[in-house]
């Protein structure tokens, strides 16, 4: 029954490349998170404050991001936009797709966060002479970011996991690199087992780092 010979040597030999690729994964996930936070904040403010075409545009964005698979979104940016003559590189497909997705999910978190900040904060800031931009950037957004800190770390973990879809659009992040090596050596199981471990370690590292950061940030 058990007549399979495991060959770990090729995996160990290409471990440096895999670790390098995992840095690419972390980089694209972090970058898409930063873009997602900025755009997501914009989307939630639009949905809370405005009416009209901008509101509908933001709502469509959020609902599309939340109600379709992330892989669909990558395919849309990868292949769908080709009809307009826009051909994104694999890196851009993953970055744009993840940012689109992150922005949609985060904006719902931010919306809850904005609603949790008392209205009086806005009024107090405005009566101190701050304009709307100052009120948002100096008073409301810092409080919101603090409220949604843990959902945001979850989203970062999701972004790392979702970036593995890059493998299907030809992006050489950790999964793509793994598939490249696996298909060259036919040691599919061994390669993906090691990659699974690397992902696990990355996720645990992110969660640990965010806990440590939280204890530093949220000390009064």
């Amino acid at each position: 029954m058990f007549d399979y010979n495991f060959h770990w040597r090729p995996v160990i030999r290409s471990l440096p490349e895999l670790l390098e690729a995992s840095l690419v994964t972390l980089q694209v996930a972090t970058l898409s998170m930063v873009i997602g936070i900025v755009v997501g904040l914009g989307l939630s403010v639009i949905r809370l404050r405005l009416r009209g075409p901008l509101y509908w545009l933001a709502t469509a964005w959020v609902e599309l991001a939340r109600n379709t698979p992330a892989l669909f979104q990558l395919f849309f940016f990868g292949f769908g936009l080709g009809a307009f003559g826009w051909h994104l590189t694999p890196y851009m497909i993953v970055l744009v797709g993840l940012s689109f997705n992150n922005a949609g999910y985060l904006s719902e978190n931010f919306r809850g966060g904005f609603q949790a900040v008392p209205d009086t904060q806005m009024r107090a800031a405005r009566s101190l002479g701050m304009n709307l931009w100052q009120t948002y950037t100096r008073i409301l957004v810092p409080q919101v970011l603090r409220i949604v800190y843990y959902p945001m770390t979850n989203q970062l973990v999701w972004a790392v996991l979702m970036s593995s879809l890059g493998m299907l659009v030809g992006f050489r992040e950790l999964s793509g690199e793994t598939q490249f090596f696996a298909s060259r050596t036919y040691r599919i199981f061994e390669y993906f087992a090691v990659t699974a471990v690397i992902y696990y370690v990355m996720v645990k590292f992110i969660l640990l780092a965010s806990r440590l950061l939280a204890t530093r940030l949220f000390r009064y």
Partner: peptide, 11 residues
């Protein structure tokens, strides 16, 4: 929950 689903599937 900590390993991408796609990796789980291939594995």
């Amino acid at each position: 929950r900590s390993v991408p689903l796609i990796i789980q599937l291939v594995l």
